[in-house]
Amino acid sequence: MRVRAIPGFGLSIGVALTWVSLIVLVPLLALAVKPWELGVAGVIRSLSEDRVLASLALSFGTAALAGLASLPIGLLLAYAIVRLRFLGRRILDGMVDLPFALPTAVAGIALTALFAPNGWLGAPLQAWFGWKVAFTPAGIVVALVFVALPFIVRTVEPVLRDLGRDAEEAAATLGATRPQALARVVLPALAPALVSGFGLGFARAVGEYGSVIFIAGNMPMVSEIAPLLIVIRLEQFDYAGAAAVGLAMLLLAFAVLLGLSLVQRGLRRGRA
């Protein structure tokens, strides 16, 4: 019998494989198989409907925008939590995770009330700038930033903590100005974490449903997200059509995340 230094190999591998199979692989396999009931031509026809294409573009576009918008905000939040000492820092630290705990529908309703044309923020935005946020794609981005932000903060935070002040101080003694130290030392060191935070936030935003359907207005071709379209097809008993949209989302998301992980590998070159 082979001797292993780390115990529990059988148990942990067994549980891991069972869990992955039951919760991830089997449902995904079903999703991958189901659409083909329509036949290849049927799947293509089902996916090439204008309404489907518009919803996919909207879902992925707004998720990407929300991820990008969350990057600077999340970075600043992480910086404040790690580097600065101020009253209420712990409270801020705790509040970052609230979107994880809050039912997304509650967040959606709250954001809708806030940004509606008669809401606290919606009314002045419309009066001063003529911006309409709720019931437009802009509203979707707002809701998605809400769910994506914690992912960025929590992935950047430990890396920033680990970076320490040493590197920034070294840059200063070598003659770098503050902006130079940030641009050449801090940001490049954080880049891999920012990319992976963006990936997590983006993935979460693509699949977000609960908060978006309240604020989006859900107009076909304009503000109807792909997950909503799946629900609509399910309600019409078009299971295969719903699965086709689901499969398309899965493949697109996988491609994006794979691309991000390649980018991240490039950024991490040479680092242990």
């Binding site: 040493d166 590197a167 101080e169 070294a170 840059a171 490049p188 060191a189 880049a191 950024l267 680092r271």
Partner: peptide, 10 residues
């Protein structure tokens, strides 16, 4: 610096 503080990404 004590722990050298080299820039790891360079």
């Amino acid at each position: 610096f004590q722990h050298y503080a080299l820039f790891r990404h360079m």
